[in-house]
Write a protein that binds this DNA or RNA. Structure first.
Lengths: 212, 212, 212, 212
DNA sequence: CATGAATGAGTGTTCATTCAT
DNA sequence: GATGAATGAACACTCATTCAT
């Protein structure tokens, strides 16, 4: 925030260079198959330089996730705070994420494999990180507010709802990125579309079955 | 099926030993971090023994996936063929998968990371395998039938619907396995619950928003 | 020599089977790249069976060489003993080896790589074996007799002469087997041809240079 | 030739270290039995270091052969071009190889096992390499010139003559290196000695037999 | 005896990490 | 600080040898 001296500013610039390269390589090859040398070369630094900025490969990976999540979260918080209604908040939340992933498709791949792989396989406890916790809490509060306002069923854990929300969102965005949707809509339309599925399901309104 | 001589039977038993160990190790560590030595040790065989049954690590991994998918698919086909209605088919499909994953939690982890990461990072083209293709076709036909019978919206690609279906399913099952649900219901109830969300969404019936 | 009981006879037959397979495989792949499993399979025995007849891979290899050398040597001794003159002996020696290698081309490859590789690279001390020693002595006595009879220069070690003799012989036979000679002659003609080169060299009789 | 910066020079020095170690180990154990760890240790580097300079074991081996052949060939070409007569060229050729192998005895072993086994067993097609082809062509042209000048019999394929030439040469040099010759002569004398055998054979001039 | 599945030491090769320059 | 060569532990895979059946 405050004005940085040249040294600190340079340091941040280099970190950013490396993170950008890492984002591309990790998205392309996955965590294990990506090598530090790949990343260093992509970033046009020497191998050792990476270690001046990140203690090890794991830290680099986590930093990447956190950095991106921080950006995403900042956008979401800022935009959703502008409206009051839960529904509008959810809509704007979706819109913001759609926009973010549209310009961060590499990160989207990582995010998906991280989030949907549910961190089973990877030894990192990213969810312990503060940005991730904050992101969870942010989404959680959106969902709780929607429950309070009677928009969303109250008989489910928010965590569960978020998972469902996230997974519908992810499915749709993957199709979107694949250009498989009939009409590749803009973020705004897409946001309403996803929210529609989330709230109303995929069923025709004819044969509604009783919720269990 | 046919009576096997001792040799063939033993061979199958040993393959099964190794596959079981592999399932556990792959679920625990992921494909890359899992080592053949880990798997051999877990199965209480020597390293080289694994190679008597599987040409290489990749083949072992694929065999594992295919073997399990074959079992899963057989159950699904058998059970869903007993009913006529699309809705009942979907319900039974869910019930069958729920039951299968309940007793195959290790495989579930692998299945999720394989399926949801959309195979970004892994070099295997498992989806080319006939069992995987057959599984896709099976789910696809269930969904198409549901569309024809007016149960599911007809304005979406089946592939998209399947993704959404699968992602809701996955989210719920993860919560279920984590015992995060208020009342850990049995497979039958859970199946109706998931189908309800899928068809009707998570919204309260009050404030329905218009689908975009 | 004496009549063998069935047990001993069977044992010899099996050894011969294995040696024959080994000959083929060693010729094809070389010592290191050949595997016992290759050989066992070729001989249509189980892997372990090979070890009932040969202590280890090295012994199998050496036995093969010795067995073949014994056959070769027996033929040479028998045939060369029929004539008196050193020149005739040499001629018959060559004829016999040519005939032997013509029907034992696999062994010829092994023999060449063993003999011409000069046992530098391989850890076996085959030359210590009695058959090899005997073979050396046999050729040596032929050469010495030729020296005594004034056929061959007396100012060289027999060992040296044998090496030269052998190497000319080998070169020619390789070309012969490759069918590179203008007229693929029979063993008798070929034998005289080699002997001619050995004794008179490759030079035209015009410009004889003085022996150093 | 051109002045190299320190980096390039160091790189060449290290490559040379490794090649030297490889030469020794390959000569001692043969290609298959030699391990990269042996070579690295001999060169006093870590295992991985070898791979910074040579892509794999095969490339290391081929590089070694090519590097040495290049040196050998350069010497031969330079020296033989100084004289006109075929006989003198052959003599100088021999002299040069004798001198080269005297100071490169390890390489001589490799050269012999590579060349004389006629590459039966080894999967590399080194003969495809340009240096090897060039070497062959060089020797071939020496032999052809000798045939044209009436020094060598014209009724044989050059390839055949070269084989004989090489094999006599090899036999003699091995004896020479073993110090088995009565008087270990210098390269010049030895060269004339070999050429004498090559042109005139090993026979006494008395009992010349008719060439077949 | 014969078998061939099992063994596990050993090899080529990679790559995260270090450190002298 | 930046570099990138060097390191060496680790892994996939092979195969000579053993031994229970």
């Amino acid at each position: 925030m405050a004005a940085l001296n040249r040294k600190d500013r340079d340091r941040l610039l280099r970190k950013a260079d490396i993170l950008k390269a890492a984002e591309h390589i990790f998205a392309l090859k996955g965590y294990d198959k990506a090598t530090i040398q790949d990343i260093a070369k992509k970033a046009q630094y020497a191998t050792g330089t990476v270690y001046l900025y990140f203690r090890d490969k794991g830290v680099l990976y986590c930093s990447l996730l956190e950095e991106k999540m921080k950006d995403l979260l900042a956008g979401i918080k800022e935009k959703t705070s502008r409206v009051k209604e839960a529904e509008a908040k959810l809509e704007i939340f979706l819109e913001e994420e759609l926009g973010f992933f549209k310009v961060n498709q590499d990160f989207f791949k990582i995010f998906v494999s991280e989030n949907n792989g549910l961190r089973f396989a990877i030894g990192f406890r990213i969810s312990k990180s503060s940005v991730f916790r904050e992101y969870s809490e942010c989404v959680s509060s959106l969902v709780k507010k929607a429950q309070q306002q009677g928009l969303i069923r109250g008989d489910l854990y928010p965590a569960q709802i978020i998972d469902i929300f996230r997974s519908i969102f992810t499915s749709v965005i993957i199709g979107w990125l694949r250009k498989e949707l009939r009409e590749p809509k803009d973020s705004k339309e897409m946001s309403r579309f996803i929210l529609g599925i989330f709230l109303n399901g995929i069923g025709c309104k004819k044969g509604l079955i009783e919720p269990a």
